[in-house]
Structure formats: structure tokens, C-alpha cells
Simulated scan of single mutants.
Amino acid sequence: MPQRFDLIVFDWDGTLFDSTALIVNSMQAAAVDLGLEAPSRERASYVIGMGLIEALAYAMPGLPQERYPELGQRYRHHYFASAHEVTLFEGVPAMLLSLKARHHWLAVATGKSRRGLDEALAAVDMTTLFDGTRTADETAGKPNPQMLLELMREFGAEPSRTLMIGDTTHDLQLARNAGCPAIAVTYGAHEHGPLLAFEPLLVAHDVATLQTWLLDHA
């Protein structure tokens, strides 16, 4: 069967990398460091995938903007102190290698910083696996479509032949804004209900289901 997609773009945190709890705990700890009330798990997990400044504004809405750099510094301190303990979801390496063997272009579009993504890729020995990557600090953050549009231009891929895969409504809104189809996964940050509103091609509850669909339909 002919391939449906030339370019497959993955979100990182909560989609390939099992970092949801680390992000939430780091945000809560950063708030406490500054003498603030820690955001709830629900509020902190909602911002996963957003750029850091937008995420902090949502998670701690009462914090004056002039304190964002301080809060961001404490967040990064806690995140990088424990990032080595986090790894890929089970089955992710095999899934990505099977897609590479079919000659799809693979990319990452993430709300992480360039430093954060590069360190994460190195930690899981994937610095050469992806054909392209975009981070929130080098382009516009989600759900602005810029990072996806840039990846499509880089590979000459049409929106209809580009697939976005993510675990948050920000990822699915990013795909919609760029005119691309999307797949939602529910094992990351956002729950099933809000993801369904974006009418994804698939809602995958585990990596095995995602891999099976991609090998059969992508």
C-alpha cells in the first residue's frame, strides 16, 4: 500500500519521553522555592508542550512577569537535577526505527528549549535518529503553527502528507493551525475527552497501538 505520509512529527514530552511527572514536580518545586502556592497537578500538567513563559503564566497566574526569569531558573534547576532518571516510553525506539526503515522523515516539534531537547536526545542516544527538530525558544511556541510550517518547508512536505502526533490539545491545535492531520496519545499529559474535540485520526492509549496504526496506515 502506498505511504500516506512523508513527514511524521512527534511531540517529545509525554509522547515519546515519559517526563510528565518530572515536569509537574519541577514546576511545583519551583513555585515553593519562591514562596508561592504550588499549582495543582492538573494545572501544571496542562501547560506541557507550551513555551516556558506561556506555561509559567498559566500555571502561576498571580506571579508578576518580572519574576518569570527567577521562576524559570528554579524550574530548570529542578528539571535538570532529575532528568537523567526519565527515559523513553516502552516501545518507542522500536517504533521509530520501524518508521525510519520505511523511509519516512521523522521530526520533533516541542515546547522544550534547544538545550533541553539536545540533552534529552543525547541521554537516550537519539541525536542522529530524527531528520529535523524545532524547539519553542528558536521559533514560536505551540499552538502557533510556525514550527510545523518550518519543518514542512525544510522537507518539502505538503500539509496533507504531514502527520503530527502529540499528547496535548496544544499539539492538536498546532496541527490544525498548520492544516495537518494529527494523532492523539492519552498516556501523556492531557486526558481523552479534550483531545477528542480535535477529531484526531487515532486516539492511542499506548505505544503499541500507535505503532500498529502507523505501520498499517501511515
Score class of each variant (00 low, 15 high):
41 R>I: 11
79 Y>P: 01
116 G>T: 09
92 V>F: 06
117 L>S: 03
174 L>T: 10
124 V>T: 08
66 E>R: 14
73 Q>C: 12
45 S>A: 14
34 L>C: 15
37 E>L: 13
204 A>V: 05
94 A>V: 11
27 M>Y: 01
136 A>W: 05
8 I>V: 14
132 G>Y: 11
30 A>D: 03
129 L>R: 07
211 Q>H: 14
169 T>V: 14
154 E>F: 02
82 S>C: 12
153 R>L: 04
204 A>H: 01
125 D>A: 13
47 V>L: 06
111 G>P: 07
203 V>R: 01
75 Y>K: 10
32 V>Q: 14
165 I>M: 07
37 E>G: 13
3 Q>N: 12
105 W>M: 12
193 G>T: 14
170 H>G: 01
31 A>Y: 01
206 D>G: 08
195 L>F: 03
213 W>V: 03
144 N>K: 13
136 A>M: 07
145 P>F: 11
114 R>H: 12
25 N>A: 15
64 P>N: 07
46 Y>L: 11
27 M>R: 05
197 A>L: 13
56 L>I: 12
119 E>N: 12
191 E>A: 14
101 A>C: 03
118 D>P: 08
181 P>D: 09
49 G>Y: 06
39 P>I: 10
170 H>C: 00
150 E>N: 03
21 A>N: 10
71 L>Q: 09
167 D>R: 09
204 A>E: 00
58 Y>G: 00
175 A>E: 02
144 N>D: 15
44 A>I: 08
59 A>R: 07
135 T>A: 11
